[in-house]
Design a protein around this nucleic acid. Sequence first.
DNA 1: GATGAATGAGATTTCATTCAT
DNA 2: GATGAATGAAATCTCATTCAT
Lengths: 210, 210, 210, 210
Amino acid sequence: MPKVSEQHLEARKQQIGAAAFQCFARKGFHPTTMQDICAEAGLSAGAVYRYFDSKQAIIGSACDVTQETSDQELLAGAIETTDTRQMLQGLADAFFSRLDGPDATTQNRAILQLWAEVAVNDDVRGSFKEREATIADGMSAIVVEAQGRGDFEAALDFQSVVRAMFALYDGFRLQKAIDPSIPTAPYVTVVKALLTGSFWTGVVPEPAKA
Amino acid sequence: MPKVSEQHLEARKQQIGAAAFQCFARKGFHPTTMQDICAEAGLSAGAVYRYFDSKQAIIGSACDVTQETSDQELLAGAIETTDTRQMLQGLADAFFSRLDGPDATTQNRAILQLWAEVAVNDDVRGSFKEREATIADGMSAIVVEAQGRGDFEAALDFQSVVRAMFALYDGFRLQKAIDPSIPTAPYVTVVKALLTGSFWTGVVPEPAKA
Amino acid sequence: MPKVSEQHLEARKQQIGAAAFQCFARKGFHPTTMQDICAEAGLSAGAVYRYFDSKQAIIGSACDVTQETSDQELLAGAIETTDTRQMLQGLADAFFSRLDGPDATTQNRAILQLWAEVAVNDDVRGSFKEREATIADGMSAIVVEAQGRGDFEAALDFQSVVRAMFALYDGFRLQKAIDPSIPTAPYVTVVKALLTGSFWTGVVPEPAKA
Amino acid sequence: MPKVSEQHLEARKQQIGAAAFQCFARKGFHPTTMQDICAEAGLSAGAVYRYFDSKQAIIGSACDVTQETSDQELLAGAIETTDTRQMLQGLADAFFSRLDGPDATTQNRAILQLWAEVAVNDDVRGSFKEREATIADGMSAIVVEAQGRGDFEAALDFQSVVRAMFALYDGFRLQKAIDPSIPTAPYVTVVKALLTGSFWTGVVPEPAKA
DNA sequence: GATGAATGAGATTTCATTCAT
DNA sequence: GATGAATGAAATCTCATTCAT
C-alpha cells in the first residue's frame, strides 16, 4: 500500500515541519534544539529522524516552506489587468494583507531567520535565490509593461524598480517582525501613493533630458 | 596610570569586537564559536574572557556596534536644507553610499544576523528599538517639515512615510547582503524618483476628496 | 508502563550515586571530575546528565545518602530498654559496628568530605542540620530518661551530654578515616567505660552541692 | 642584606598564608581560587607566586599552620601536675578555651577542610599524622601516669583512652564549625564529668574480673 | 620585587544523532 | 513504525601558572 504510506509520510513531514517552523520563529534556527522540535511535534527523536535526515534537513525544508508559493498566482492575476494603477493597488492589497493574518508574526519572524541563514549558509542560498528570481521575473514583466504604457518613467532600470517594490514589502515585514503592533493599512496607503504618483505633491522638474 | 590600562582595555575590546563581527557576518551568531572569535582576534580563550563575560556579551556588544551611529549626523545636516528635493537626494546619496564601502557586505550580513536575533532575543531587542526610535524621530521631523512645505501629500501618515523610507533602505540592504553584486546606483535613482515624484509618469487622479 | 521506567530511573540514579560516592571518598567532592564519575559508573557524560542536572546535584544527593538512615531504628530499639547500662552498651555496639564493615573506610572518608562541605556550602547545610537534629532528639530522650532514672548526673546539660556522645562517635570516625587500621574494639570498651562509670577509678569528690 | 630579605620573605609568606587560610575556611581548599587568595592578600598573582610555588604549596602550608603548635606546651605543663583530676580539668579548660576565641569559627572550619583533605591527599597526610602522633604521645604519657596512679581503670587500652579524649575535642569542634552558636561551657562540664567520674551516678558493677 | 595580561589545558554541560527494544 | 536511553564530540567557560614590562 504505497498510497497510505506515501500519505502518511507526507503528513508526518508536514507535522514536523510545522512544529519546527514554530520553534524557529520563536528561537531562531540554531538555538532551537531537536528536543524543542520533538516536543512541539509531540513525537520522539527517533520518529523525527525517520522523516528527516538531520536538523539541517529540517532547516532546509523550513526555508523552502517559508516563502509563500502563492506569489506566482497573485502576479499572474495582476498582469492581466491593463490599468497600471488599479493593478498596483490590487497587488499591494494582496501582498500586504498577508502581513495581518493570525500567524503573520510567526511567519515574519521565521523569515528573518531565513534571511539571516541565507546570508551565511550556502546550502539554502541556492534555492532561495531561485525562488526570488522567479517572483522577480514576474514583477519585471509587470514593470516593463507599465513602462511601455508610459506609466512608469521609462529611463528607470526596471530591475531596480522591482527591487524597490521588494524592499517596500520586505522592509516593512522586518519592522512588523520586530514590532507586530505596527498597523498595516496606513503603510499600504503610502506605498500606493509612492508607486502611483500621489506621494510627491511639490514641483516636479522637467525630465532630466529636456 | 589608569590611562594606559583604560586605553588598553578599550583597544582590546575593540579588537575582539571587530573579530567577532567578522565571524558573525560570516557564520551567524550562534554557529560562530568562541574558538572562531579567538582565532580571528589572535587571542587565547582566556584573554577574550578577560574583556567579555560571555559569548552573549560579545553578541550584545556586536549588536550595539552594528548600527551606524552617524545616522544622527546625516539627519542633522539634512534638516537644515529647505529644498526638500535636494535634501532627499542628499540623504539618499549619503545613506546608500554606505552600502558600497569596502566591508559593506560584512556590515550587511551582520545586520541580517542582528535582525534575526532581535526578533528572537529579548535582551537585544530593547536597545535596538531605542536606537531605531531615535533615527525614526529624526526622519519624522523631516517628513513633517516636507508635508508642511506642501512637498509630500499631507494626508499621509507621517510615521508610515518614515517606515517606507526605512524599508527602501533596509530592504535593499537585505538584497545586497544576499547578493553583493547588485549595483547600488540605479537603485538609488529609483528611490529618488519615488520620493520626488518622477517615478509615476502616468495620469495622476484628482486627490481623493476634491 | 511507567513502572519499568520509574524503576529504571531509580536504579540508574542509584548506580550513578554509588559511583560518585566512591569517587568522592577517594578524591573529595571538588577534585572529582564528571569524567571520574562517568568512568566509575560505566556511563557516558550524556547519560549521567539525564539523571542528574549538574555535578552539584550529584554532590547534594551524595550528601543526603551519606548519613545512615538506620540511626533512627537503633535509637527506637534502645529506648525500650530500661537498664541504662545495658542500653548504652547495646547502642555503642550497634553504632560502632558500622565502622568496621567492608566499606567503612569509604563511608568514613566520604563523611569527612561531607563535613567539610557542610561547613562551607549553604545548600547542603540545611538538610544536614535537619537530619542531625532528628538523631539528636532521639538521643536527648534517652539521656533525659537516664537522668530521670538517676543514672546520669542530673545537673548536666542533657544537650551537651548528647553532644559528647556524638563527639565520641564522630571523633573516632575521623581518626579511622585517616588511619583505617585503628582497631575499634578497645575504643568501644573505653567509650562504654566512660559512659557507665567504670573509667575513673580514683576518688570521686562529693557532689558540688554537698 | 640577607636579614631584611629573610624577614621580608617570611612576612610575605605569613601574609599570604593568612589570606589563604581565611579563604579556605570560607570556601574550602579547592573552590578557593588563586584570585581569591590574591585579593584577600592584596597582592598580584605574580607576587604570590614569588613566595609559593603553587596552590598545592599554599594548601600544604595552610595544613601545617592549621594545627595549633602550642599543644605541646599545654601538655608539658599538665604532666607536672600530680593531681589527675585537677590536671584534667586544667587541660580541658586550656584546650576548649581555644574554641571560643574571636576567630575560632574560622579555625574550626579550616580544620574541617584539613581533615577532608588529609583523608584524600597523600601529600598532606604524612605531616598531619606526624603532628598528631606527637600530641598523642604527650597524652599517652599522661594517661599512663594516671593509670599508674590508679585514677583511670588500668585495664583500658591507653591509646584508646587518648583517642577518646581527642574525639571529645575534635568531635565538638566539628559541631561548632557547623553551628558556631553552640555554647562551650556546658559541654566542657560534661567532658570533665566523664573523665573524672562524676558523670555516671548509677550503680557501678564490680570490675569484670573480680 | 611587583604587576596583571595572557596562556591553554581541562572542567562542566549540551545536543544532534543512533539503535536496541 | 515508534520510543527514548545512550552516546560522545564539541561548546562554553575557568583558573593555575607564566613572563614581559
